[in-house]
């Protein structure tokens, strides 16, 4: 499946904003993403497997709030960093 990467995380993907990952759940897809781009998962998901406060993940444009969200091979994952800060 395709994963859309925000600019905040592009250092991990060699500045690719569209990469691929595989998995039957969001947790598996993020684990696969971390194998390909080590370190990226912990910036998005905490050690308690919670999506971080200022990060949103969309699957086919619907927000996924849990990592056990099921995925299909043609789904598109979009990782977004919230508009916050200063």
């Amino acid at each position: 499946m395709n994963v859309l990467i925000p600019s905040n995380l592009a250092d991990y993907t060699g500045h690719e904003h569209r990469v691929t990952a595989s998995g039957a759940t969001l947790a598996e897809a993020l684990a696969d993403l971390d194998r390909r781009y080590p370190g990226i998962r912990f910036r998005i998901v905490s050690e308690q497997d919670r999506i971080r406060r200022h990060v949103k993940i969309f699957v086919n444009r619907e927000q996924a709030k849990r990592l056990d969200a099921p995925l299909a091979a043609r789904d598109e994952i979009m990782i977004v960093c919230a508009l916050s800060g200063g």
């Binding site: 995380l9 912990f42 998005i44």
Partner: peptide
């Protein structure tokens, strides 16, 4: 402000950097 915490390390006084493979986490 958005992403989780990490530690970066350089063994050549800042000429090159690598991220910790396993940053501090509970």
């Amino acid at each position: 402000g958005h992403l989780g915490p990490t530690v970066f390390r350089s063994v050549d006084f800042g000429r090159s950097w690598r991220e910790a493979k396993r940053p501090p986490a509970f």
